[in-house]
């Protein structure tokens, strides 16, 4: 299976692990990630104002390229996923916005939201299947108590993201179980880490991050996994005393392809 892939700026820099292990693991699962040519930064956040157009063009370009190749577009970073999925939704539902974008883009045939956008986790669940994933695991992570941290960007707004139950999601827990580990369920897993506000108010980010880590630990977690570089940064910077790792790293480990990459 071949899919279009949008890595995003952080994955080529501070979050190289997230990207590298995503590639290796996909390969092991029989999925080829074809990187969008000349992709540009998604902008990190989706501006909800209806008259904000220019900042969303890079997302539309990526979507259009996947559409031309008749492939689904897969993302790994929570932020890229949120921006691209919301942009795609706006192209589908907001005619004025789509018309403006298509005038800017001036590409053949235009674009109106035809591409299916998958987060890497959704790709594992819906295209690969967690059962298949389970079969391909060579190093089951037995006995590890792992807490999934969703944050906000993967799940909200639910009417657009539509990934899972936004208040009691299970996709990452199912992922953890497929790798052979124990999933720790804790209620703060869909609360905000403080996000970009750590620039403005480091204390706010610290409080939010600590509340997440403490809740995970109180429910027995020994490790936290995330899909978001900013979540990871905030949790680690604010003193998480259990490991916070990218979910792709865990995946690579279970699939036995982690060591390859370190060579």
């Amino acid at each position: 299976m071949k899919v279009s892939y949008f890595p995003g700026c952080t994955l080529k820099n501070k979050a190289k692990d997230l990207d590298l292990y995503a590639y290796k693991s996909a390969e092991a699962l029989g999925v080829t990630l074809e990187e969008i040519e000349n992709w540009q930064c998604c902008g990190g956040v989706f501006t909800t104002a209806k008259n904000e157009v220019a900042t969303k063009l890079s997302s539309v370009r990526a979507l259009k390229e996947a559409c031309t190749k008749e492939q689904p577009l897969v993302t790994v970073c929570s932020a890229c996923h949120n921006v691209i999925k919301q942009t795609n939704h706006a192209m589908q539902t907001d005619k004025d916005f789509a018309a403006k974008v298509n005038r800017y883009m001036n590409e053949d045939g235009g674009y109106s939201g035809e591409t299916a956008v998958y987060h890497y986790l959704e790709m594992l669940r819906d295209l690969v299947g967690f059962d298949t994933l389970k079969e391909k695991v060579v190093n089951p992570l037995k006995g590890k108590k792992i807490a999934a941290y969703y944050g906000c960007l993967l799940l909200r707004p639910n009417s657009v993201m539509n990934m899972d139950d936004p208040e009691n999601p299970t996709i990452m827990e199912d992922f953890i179980k497929a790798l052979g580990a124990d999933a720790v369920v804790y209620s703060m897993r869909n609360e905000c880490c403080g996000g970009y506000v750590s620039v403005e108010s480091p204390d706010l980010a610290k409080n939010k991050s600590n509340a997440v880590v403490n809740n995970a630990k109180a429910q027995g977690a020994e490790m936290i996994i995330t899909a978001c570089p900013l979540c990871k940064y905030n949790l680690v910077k604010n003193g998480a005393d259990i490991p916070v790792v990218y979910f792709t790293e865990l995946l690579a480990e279970a699939l036995g392809v982690k060591e390859d990459t370190n060579e």
């Binding site: 979050a15 932020a79 620039v199």
Partner: peptide, 10 residues
């Protein structure tokens, strides 16, 4: 460790 994502979002 500041990820690019933080700066572009901010």
């Amino acid at each position: 460790d500041v990820p690019q994502q933080l700066l572009v979002s901010a």
